[in-house]
């Protein structure tokens, strides 16, 4: 029992520190990738190839004044960024990050808590994460913030249905809600990947994932060109940094979910060992999100709602129905 608690604490600390560091490194990668796609150089001045830009940004975030506007609701204003960051990492607790491996004669399961309803827990926690932007926007007594909060509620109510329905068809095929069962179902090589059986669900899940992580075609809750910074208008320093870390951690979580559910998870992929395979897949999804950001413009809130409710949701329902018929016959 004691060993279990100690192991869990060690895993939690490791996941927290590694993902937080990756989230920070992700900002550098994003700027570089975007720059190359737009034929610029990106950050170049701090360190070799701008690598130390990360440290410079970190110092700036940590030392900046923690500013709270006079009309704001102080308590809620201070809690909101923590909700985003905390829920992003709690969601990661139920995600199996790597295959089991043996270290110093002990078998390590790289998952903090193996729930048999893992996928629902992850999606529910990520959904709860949107309370961060919502509360931040409402508490700061700023009209741009309030607009951001209103858009948060609209985005949330739009994509949530699509996420649930799109993931339902793979759940029906696998017959389990555990992410490890999803992974084991696709153990027989590339032909067993669920993306071949559920291509539509994969596309729908990915689109909803973009809305969930607030990435560019759907980043209307902090759309700089329309509403300053939306919910984050009045935030500065580390509180703003927490929103950022939460967003990047969510991107990584969506990458893991998409790889585990549709792309064969951490099974060995040809000659690649499983651990490397899943890291490659997650990196691809991360890159894909940056790629889309460089290629597509923002869309309006009503366009997002139209897309989710009138196009994606009927498609998802049809997909679930067809899957059900095929499984019954």
């Amino acid at each position: 029992m004691d060993g279990y608690i100690i192991a869990t604490v060690i895993k939690a600390v490791l996941v927290l520190s590694i993902i937080a560091a990756l989230a920070g490194f992700g900002t550098y990668l994003e700027r570089k990738v975007l720059a190359f796609m737009q034929r610029r150089l990106g950050p170049m001045h701090v360190g070799p190839y701008g690598l130390l830009q990360l440290a410079a940004d970190g110092i700036k975030l940590f030392t900046k004044e923690d500013f709270i506007p006079s009309g704001a609701n102080r308590l809620i204003f201070m809690i909101a960024p923590m909700i985003t960051a905390a829920t992003a990492f709690i969601a990661l607790a139920a995600v199996p990050l790597l295959p089991e491996f043996t270290l110093f004669g002990v078998t390590v399961k790289p998952i903090i808590s193996d729930l048999d309803i893992g996928i629902l827990f992850v999606l529910g926690m990520m959904a709860a994460g949107l309370y961060g932007p919502l509360l931040a926007g409402m508490a700061q007594d700023n009209k741009w913030g309030l607009l951001g909060a209103a858009r948060t509620a609209a985005v949330f109510l739009s994509y949530e249905v699509v996420t649930g329905l799109s993931i339902l068809a793979p759940i029906m095929i696998v017959g389990s809600l555990s992410l490890i069962d999803f992974n084991n179902y696709q153990a027989g090589g590339m032909g067993d990947w669920l993306i071949w059986k559920q291509p539509l669900a994969f596309v729908l899940f990915l689109i909803a994932g973009f809305a969930e992580t607030n990435r560019t075609p759907f980043d209307l809750i902090e759309n700089e060109s329309e509403i300053i910074a939306g919910y984050a208008t009045e935030y500065s320093g580390m509180r703003w940094g927490m929103f950022f870390i939460g967003e990047y951690a969510n991107m990584i979580t969506i990458g893991f979910l998409a790889s585990l559910v549709f792309l064969g998870g951490f099974n060995d992929w040809g000659f690649l060992p499983g651990g490397l395979a899943i890291l490659l897949k997650v990196s691809f999804f991360f890159f894909f999100m940056l790629w889309v950001r460089a290629s597509w413009p923002h869309i309006r809130p009503d366009q997002l709602m139209w897309l989710c409710w009138k196009v994606l949701m009927p498609l998802a329902v049809i997909n679930v129905t067809i899957t059900g018929f095929v499984m019954m016959v």
Partner: peptide, 14 residues
């Protein structure tokens, strides 16, 4: 409980 009420209270916020 988590998923349903997160969504429901979000609508209440609106």
């Amino acid at each position: 409980q988590l998923i349903v009420y997160v969504g429901a209270v979000m609508a209440l916020y609106a």
